[in-house]
Design a binder for these strands. Structure first.
Lengths: 139, 139
DNA sequence: CGGGATCCTAACCGATACTG
DNA sequence: CAGTATCGGTTAGGATCCCG
């Protein structure tokens, strides 16, 4: 409410921040394949998690993408990165307070996925079946 | 809970669906630049919205991306597409019941963005300032 | 009006090799 | 261990043209 952006918040929230407003950029943070998952893993493990530990728990992510994702989250103040300059080095990641609050939302998203994925999957099958052999729907 | 996937739900939700499970795919639906915004606009306008209307309200989206996004949402059963074969044609999009429930989540995300974007933006500035001229942090 | 079909570029992202 | 650097394939996605 004190940003250098002529921009009105509610009630039409989405339409208001659609036009080059900061919140839109923030939303785009979530538009990432790994962000919600990283937040979720960090959230579920209450304790800090080391890099390779994180990588193992995020099966499928490459170290490059994990690094990049974590850097982004750190940059946005969502994730804290603590470095212990031992040998071998030890780097621990954890959610900041801000990240934790977003983590709750990402968890809600996860729960929603868990609850509704069957509906979505069956909707997909229906759609695919419908569009596959229906170039001319009404004969 | 009745999917053809050996997969246990809670309590470690994220870690459970990390390994090629349906919910993960569903989560990836949300990892899209436009999905949350489209859902948001459709949610805020209670009424059905026509294609080009939608396009105008989603300032910046190309018709290609809007089409693709809407097709995906329709395929997943989140958005309903009603075609009125008049001249000129009239196509209206609206949220399905499933889409509406997801719309609530996307709205929560929007609200979160609205509330916290300043923190994120300032965190970014701090981070950039810190990393810009600190190749050797301790002198 | 609501798209589909192409072309083309930037970015994403995986694989690999190297480093403190 | 926790990265960085580089190469190269794939894709996302914008611009443009066209059609019913």
């Amino acid at each position: 409410m004190d940003t250098a952006c002529d921009w009105e918040p509610s009630p039409n929230l989405v339409e208001s921040y659609l036009h080059h407003c900061p919140a839109r950029e923030v939303l785009s943070v979530l538009a990432d394949k790994w962000v919600l998952l990283v937040l979720g893993v960090l959230r579920e493990s209450g304790d800090p998690v080391r890099f390779n530990d994180l990588r193992r728990r995020l099966d499928g992510i490459t170290q490059k993408m994990l690094t990049k994702t974590l850097r982004g989250l750190e940059r946005d103040g969502l994730v804290r990165r603590d470095v212990y300059p031992t040998v071998p080095p030890r780097v621990e990641y954890s959610l900041s307070e801000l990240g934790a609050s977003l983590g709750e939302l990402s968890h809600a998203m996860g729960r929603w996925s868990e609850q509704h994925h069957t509906e979505i999957l069956s909707a997909r099958e229906d759609f695919d079946a419908r569009t596959a052999r229906t170039p001319a729907p009404l004969r």
